[in-house]
Simulated scan of single mutants.
Amino acid sequence: MPELFISAFITLFVVIDPPGCAPIYAGLTKDASPAQARNMALRATAIAAVILLIFAFFGEKLLGALHIQLDSFRIAGGFMLFWIAFEMVFEKRTQRRTERADKINADPEVEDVSVFPMAMPMLAGPGAIAAIMLLMNEADTAAQAAEVFAALGAVLIITAAALVAAGPLIRLLGDKVEAVITRLLGVLLAALATQYVIDGLRGSFGF
């Protein structure tokens, strides 16, 4: 299997975190019918895909317009991903997502959660945007770009499936298993984030 596809898949899977989004989505849609919950899950995934594709194609041009070097963005993105990893390992990310979900549930006027908070910022958040831009920079050929898009598509398909099956999935795994998976993914993301920072420093200072 191509190396870039594996790296992109792991990075995007860890950042988007389908196992972590599933329990939050289950809580947000507890009063919705199965059909409504399924439609919102698919819509949220589709919107997140559009957002990430926009940044994949035009993110570098946006940086150029703002006079930001890609190596600088790589370092900043690495630190951002490392912070996400830190929160995952110490369960801060899950706590923040739960608080956000409770806030949304407290507002009776909010019914469709597909755009906010699911598509943004849970699925296509700053970490995912930074990750897809950094990964696209690693793709030197059209074939490698296709690997990144294939990895993104695979992760989003898994995410959609996890959201659709959120209720049964949480009952099957339980809170403890979900917490263990999240922490393991956090450690892996920390290593990948550190590599991004090293690559950025190497590109900026030539060592």
Rank of each mutant, 00 (worst) to 15 (best):
M1K: 07
P2N: 13
E3A: 15
S7F: 08
A8N: 05
F9G: 11
F9E: 12
L12I: 09
P23G: 08
Y25F: 15
A26V: 01
A26G: 15
T29G: 08
K30V: 10
D31P: 01
D31T: 13
S33V: 12
P34M: 06
Q36N: 10
N39P: 01
A41N: 09
R43C: 03
A44G: 12
T45M: 13
A48F: 09
A49Y: 09
I51Y: 01
I51L: 14
I51M: 11
E60D: 12
L63F: 13
L63C: 08
Q69V: 02
L70F: 15
D71C: 02
S72D: 01
R74W: 03
G78V: 04
F79L: 15
F79E: 00
L81Y: 05
L81F: 04
W83I: 13
I84R: 00
A85Y: 07
E87P: 00
M88K: 13
M88R: 11
M88A: 08
F90K: 10
E91A: 13
K92P: 06
T94P: 00
R97L: 14
E99C: 03
E99I: 15
E99A: 15
R100Q: 14
D107F: 09
V110F: 06
V110L: 14
D112G: 09
V115Y: 04
P117E: 10
M122H: 06
G125H: 04
G125K: 04
G127S: 02
G127Y: 00
A128P: 04
I129P: 00
M136Y: 04
A139P: 07
D140G: 13
T141N: 10
T141Q: 09
A142I: 13
A146G: 12
V148N: 08
V148K: 03
A150M: 13
A154T: 15
L156K: 09
I157R: 02
I158N: 03
L163M: 14
V164S: 04
A165H: 04
A166S: 15
P168F: 12
I170C: 14
R171H: 13
R171Q: 14
D175Y: 06
K176H: 11
A179F: 10
L184R: 05
G186E: 06
G186P: 09
A191R: 00
A193D: 03
A193K: 06
A193G: 08
T194D: 02
V197F: 03
I198S: 03
I198Y: 08
G200I: 00
G203P: 00
F207N: 12
